[in-house]
Nucleic acid binder design. Structure first.
Length: 271
DNA sequence: CTGAAGACCTGCCTGC
DNA sequence: TGCAGGCAGGTCTTCA
């Protein structure tokens, strides 16, 4: 499901209803998702949720000294529901807060995963230690892209999706950003000049910001925590549009496969 | 070191 | 209608 905009939209949807609440109990409806689930009840019951944060595509539930990190994988969803609400399909974990509020985790494919981290030093955890800058923070600049691309012969699309270069850019937004920057997705990263790197940086920032503003992209099963869909999918210019006319030049959008992932681009506009 | 491919798992869509 | 096949937004591991 989610790239950075979707995770950020989920974060904002959870922060309002949950921040400040004490956690009573955690129920696991199965022992593992992608990895074995930690004993969240032992680690967190009785603690108060200070805030819901985000790093890359991970949600970080700040319970003071102890944090809960959660990755949604492809199909993970969080829903805030009354504690008495019946379990939805593929519901695997329930966090029961005070006031009859519960947070439910649903995940059809079970690619998601969760871990308990100490608040001090969480950035050293293997999930976070090697990550590149956040794309919407000052640490991400044309200069950081230029450095990261300099030694890379891989196609620029794969370099852009590499979390060591910049976090949060997945398959959809990589395609969209490259279209906006008019760069061919198969061009080797090291063969992109400074001017085009500047355009690509601006395109990444713009497309992610617009997607967050639109509430994320609901392609198949992304839903916000309140159950509403996001609307950015209507704004895709190339993703999922193989055979349809380019919004700029009218020629047909093409689909290729790079490193096992579908790539959509305009062969006329992108060079 | 880099890069490509496979694996994880289920649901949904297409086409026969 | 039924079923096989292909496809899906992310990451991690393995292999060349």
């Amino acid at each position: 499901m989610p790239e950075l905009p979707e995770v950020e939209v989920v974060r904002r949807g959870l922060q309002g209803p949950l921040a400040g609440l004490g956690l009573r109990r955690v129920e696991r409806l199965r022992a593992d998702l992608r990895y074995p689930l930690p004993d969240m009840d032992a680690a967190l019951a009785g603690r108060r949720l200070a805030a819901v944060r985000r790093r890359a595509k991970y949600l970080l539930f700040d319970f003071g000294e102890t944090w809960l990190a959660w990755h949604l994988g492809m199909t993970g969803q969080f829903h805030v529901l009354p504690a008495v609400a019946p379990a939805g399909p593929h519901e695997h974990v329930r966090l029961l807060f005070e006031g009859g509020v519960s947070l439910r985790y649903r995940d059809a494919r079970r690619f998601g995963y969760a871990g308990i981290l100490p608040a001090r030093g969480w950035t050293e955890h293997p999930w976070f230690a090697g990550l590149g800058p956040e794309p919407l923070e000052p640490g991400f600049s044309p200069a950081t892209l230029e450095r990261a691309f300099a030694s890379r012969r891989a196609p620029v699309k794969q370099a852009l999706m590499d979390a060591r270069v910049v976090v949060g850019v997945g398959n959809i937004y990589a395609c969209e950003a490259l279209f906006r920057a008019r760069i061919h997705p198969a061009r080797p990263a090291c063969r992109i000049g400074r001017a085009r790197i500047g355009r690509l940086h601006a395109a990444v920032v713009a497309v992610l910001s617009e997607a967050i503003e639109a509430g994320g992209s609901s392609i198949s099963d992304f839903l916000r925590a309140d159950g509403r869909p996001g609307y950015f999918a209507h704004a895709f210019r190339v993703y999922g549009r193989a055979g349809a006319p380019c919004v700029d030049c009218g020629r047909l959008i093409r689909r290729i496969v790079q490193a096992g992932r579908a790539t959509f681009y305009c062969p006329h506009c992108q060079r």
